[in-house]
Design a protein around this nucleic acid. Structure first.
Lengths: 212, 212
DNA sequence: AATTAAATCAAACGATTGATTCAATCACTT
DNA sequence: AAGTGATTGAATCAATCGTTTGATTTAATT
């Protein structure tokens, strides 16, 4: 019971690694079952379809991610009476769980980041998954609007979207700039990446408003 | 001769529209030839493979885009003696040609933006295309380093990457925030989007340096 | 008009995809 | 130990993919 993974878990683990490295569309059910050492019927028996495998793989990761983000936001909110949270702290609460923290090893972080990066690079395959983020997005929007009361609803939405863009490209691996960064500095330092991203985004949020 | 498009152009036009709306991986050669009203062998006769169709479609768009960007950067550089370019101006020179300007109609802008958005959402399919941007990237990096001399090479690279992220998400259509933006404000105003993106990114570039 | 090259055509290739079938096997209760 | 429902195995389904073929038509050259 303890040492032997059940079929469902074996499928999820294999699918996650393959989705993370090759992407979803490029991963066939047959490569999954080969890696999981499982029969192809097991996938349809336990999940019903490839789409539901995708959903299950992402849900398994998104649930704890949402928890982490909410915990950090909660901590800032309960502290708010004595010391109001800064924009940087809220942005950090949003980015840290996905970019650096809450991982037991380098390998696991690579895998999670690789997986999440495909949320942006294969929108069609994961469109049905994005809703799992909705509630958390709302809460972070609210927290930001509290300490940036001069920003209109539209201002906030746009800047929030830009933040997602920065986060998204930070998780990508094979873009031109990312490649060059690896050439110049070797391995990516995710602690540094996190700080830089938070810094960049915070400046964007705190920029004065304009009339558009 | 004047009214009749040749086969090569018909293929490119059909492929561009399909890539733009459905993505590259989701577009089969058969849907292309159906739209172009052309025989399937014509694709391999004129291009050799699907990969080269992709290359040709993107090259046709990237070449004038690079020109536009360089023209604008050139204009700022020749003016530099009397008035040094601002960060906002350089960022605008980078973003305007792809987000708003240099399009003869809404339809054409939609199509171009849709096409370019897949440069970020289907990296595997277009990896061989990204090199076409390399030289222009270098020049903009240089221009930015001149007016932001306190930024290290690494600082610049990271922030440049973040800019690409903001640009990328701005071209996306089906992300959570983008959807909400359409709900709230109806049609996307690309002039406003451009100004907001430039504003956000400029703040990020001009943020003080940190020790990481 | 004869020859050659470029371009297009219908048809089919082998490979791969997600999904399904149904018999064999397993784990568990009685 | 028998029986029962949950699970897995091997084989196959129809559909679609990018690519190739060889014949045929069109255009250019001599």
């Amino acid at each position: 019971m303890a040492s032997k993974k059940d079929t469902k878990t074996k499928i999820l683990d294999a699918a996650e690694e393959l989705f993370s490295t090759q992407g979803i569309g490029a991963t066939s059910l047959r490569t999954i079952i080969a890696k999981a050492d499982v029969n192809i019927a097991a996938i349809h028996y336990h999940f019903g379809s490839k789409k539901e495998v995708v959903t299950a793989v992402y849900a398994r990761r998104i649930t704890p991610l949402n928890q982490q983000r909410l915990e950090r936001l909660e901590a800032l909110n309960t502290r708010a009476a004595e010391k109001a949270p800064t924009v940087a702290e809220i942005v950090d609460a949003f980015l840290a769980p996905i970019l650096n923290c809450s991982f037991s090893s380098k390998k696991e972080r690579e895998r999670a980041i690789g997986l999440f990066s495909h949320l942006h690079t294969e929108p069609q395959e994961v469109a049905h998954v994005l809703d799992l983020f909705k509630d958390v997005f709302e809460l972070f929007m609210m927290a930001l609007s509290k300490i940036l009361p001069h920003l209109s609803k539209a201002d906030l939405l746009w800047r929030f979207m830009f933040m997602i863009g920065v986060m998204s490209i930070s998780m990508s691996n094979d873009h031109l700039v990312h490649r060059k960064l690896r050439e110049n500095g070797g391995e990516i330092n995710y602690q540094e990446l996190l700080q830089r991203a938070v810094h960049f985004i915070t400046a964007g949020f705190e920029a004065p408003t304009l009339d558009y």
